[in-house]
């Protein structure tokens, strides 16, 4: 059975560009996923990351509508998702700094409104609603070469920013009060972290879709956290785990024609619970 799945998958990779693109997209997105996911886990902002992920539907929906109805081509739907995610990060960041007590309520509001805007524009767009499904649950097989360049570019951006500021980012996550006393502008770095989260979320939306992003962003990093003693180790392990999961998700889903995003997330969740159980028993 596995042999059959494997053969079908490897044949497809050899013969189809879209399979090669899909594999490459998964591998490239894993880099940001491991690096930024580690920060999201240690700073405990997965709810914020979830909110940002869902608001990307607004960007995707609006740009898709403009494309179909008005022939607007200046930005791709993925570009629209980048704008929506950064905007959501700015709003949520401001709220969580200034209205601490009601932070979760406001995140919930931004989350739902972002989705509602997306749904409204998608319903205004003539055509099939399958687009909605592929935004929500991902369709890695649809990744174009333009998308790949965008993913690679965002990857480089994320890595450069983290390499430049890793000292401050780590200190802000570990003990922000102490970091502030050391003269670190903690609010700026908080926004920077949310911005990186927004960009990474957009990368992952193309792999597993809006609803499933949060699992892929946080679970590989959470698994890595059980083994790593230092942040760079956590990032490296999370990246490898994420790449392994997206690749196997793609491989296992191909022959039975199952949605790759959902299979990837089922694998991710199972791996997470299995790791946590094994680690706990020891």
């Amino acid at each position: 059975m596995l042999a059959f799945l494997g053969t079908a998958f490897f044949d497809a990779v050899r013969s189809h560009h879209f399979m090669q693109y899909a594999l490459l997209a998964g591998a490239l997105a894993s880099v940001s996923c491991g690096v930024v996911g580690s920060f999201v886990v240690i700073r405990r902002i997965s709810y914020i990351a979830g909110g940002i992920a869902h608001t990307t539907l607004a960007g995707l929906g609006v740009v898709h509508y403009l494309q179909v109805v008005h022939g607007f081509t200046a930005i791709s739907p993925m570009g629209g998702a980048v704008i929506a995610a950064l905007l959501a990060a700015a709003i949520i960041g401001w709220v969580s700094l200034h209205l601490k007590q009601r932070e979760d309520t406001v995140i919930g509001a931004v989350w739902a409104m972002g989705m509602a805007i997306g749904v409204v524009f998608i319903s205004l767009t003539p055509g099939y609603t399958t687009d909605l499904m592929s935004y929500l649950f991902g369709n890695i097989l649809m990744v174009s070469s333009t998308d790949l360049w965008l993913i690679a570019g965002l990857d480089v951006l994320v890595l450069v920013v983290v390499a430049l500021f890793h000292k401050q980012l780590l200190a802000v996550c570990f003990d922000s009060e102490f970091a502030a006393l050391q003269g670190v502008h903690i609010n700026r770095f908080y926004f920077l972290l949310l911005g990186l989260t927004a960009l990474t979320v957009v990368l992952l939306v193309s792999v597993v879709g809006i609803i499933l992003v949060i699992a892929l962003l946080t679970l590989p990093a959470a698994m890595a956290n059980l083994f790593a003693r230092r942040l760079w180790q956590m990032m490296a392990i999370a990246t490898l785990v994420c790449a392994a999961l997206t690749t196997s998700g793609l491989a296992l889903s191909y022959a039975p024609d199952l949605p790759a995003g959902a299979v990837t997330i089922l694998l991710t969740g199972s791996a997470f619970f299995a790791t946590a159980l094994v680690k706990r028993r020891r």
Binding site: S38, K167, A171, F174, F178, A228, R229, R230, L231, M234
Partner: peptide, 10 residues
């Protein structure tokens, strides 16, 4: 995920 040295460096 930090070592004693990582914390001290802060």
């Amino acid at each position: 995920p930090v070592s004693a040295l990582d914390v001290t460096l802060m």
